[in-house]
């Protein structure tokens, strides 16, 4: 894995996260499924903001829209927004300890969920229940592991 170039690792990581995000799961397990795709986008926005940028969030969101069959642009807008904020604040978030980082991520995941929720309302879809908030909790808990698995802090661990 370490031999691969950043671009290859990023592409594979993003594809795997997308698959995990849309993979069919039993109902109860599905409630707890973190937003893998958003977490991957956030990682690359914070660790390598010059690589994908806001466009990466937009494309990942658009892929989710197309696959989930919701109005095109819904997840694209939400993911581009959190990617933008993560890029703007990447130096701050990157230099926080692993105890503080998850709080920033929780905020971003909540913002993402709120944007998706608002657009659900505008387009006349069902708003769901409080179980929509569960992926934020699991996503926040997942963040330290995802950070390590996806490559850690690229600015420090140069080998």
């Amino acid at each position: 894995m370490r031999r691969w170039s950043l671009r290859h690792r990023a592409t594979v990581g993003l594809l795997v996260s997308f698959v995990l995000q849309v993979m069919p799961l039993p109902a109860v397990l599905g409630w707890f499924r973190p937003s893998f795709a958003v977490i991957a986008v956030l990682y690359w926005s914070i660790a390598a903001p010059g690589w994908g940028g806001v466009g990466l969030g937009f494309l990942m969101g658009l892929a989710l829209d197309a696959y989930l069959g919701v109005v095109l642009g819904q997840h694209a807008l939400a993911t581009a927004l959190v990617a933008y904020i993560a890029i703007r604040q990447h130096l701050i978030i990157r230099n926080k300890s692993m105890f503080e980082q998850p709080f920033y991520i929780a905020g971003l995941l909540l913002l993402w969920q709120i944007v998706v929720w608002i657009i659900d309302g505008w387009t006349g879809h069902a708003l769901g229940s409080w179980t929509r908030l569960l992926p934020i909790v699991t996503g926040t808990l997942l963040w330290p592991f995802a950070w390590e698995w996806l490559g850690g802090d690229l600015s420090r661990s140069r080998r």
């Binding site: 370490r2 031999r3 691969w4 170039s5 950043l6 671009r7 660790a47 390598a48 903001p49 010059g50 690589w51 940028g53 806001v54 466009g55 969030g57 937009f58 969101g61 642009g73 819904q74 694209a76 807008l77 581009a80 927004l81 933008y84 890029i87 703007r88 990447h90 490559g151 690229l154 600015s155 661990s157 140069r158 080998r159």
Partner: peptide, 29 residues
């Protein structure tokens, strides 16, 4: 990991992120 490859991407480049976000947001809307 290829360090020269990674360091290119460690900070933002090109058009400011704010402008890009506005363009993508309008596109999404």
């Amino acid at each position: 990991m290829n360090s020269s490859d990674a360091s290119r991407y460690l900070s933002t480049r090109g058009a400011p992120a704010g402008l890009r976000f506005v363009i993508y947001a309008v596109l999404a809307l």
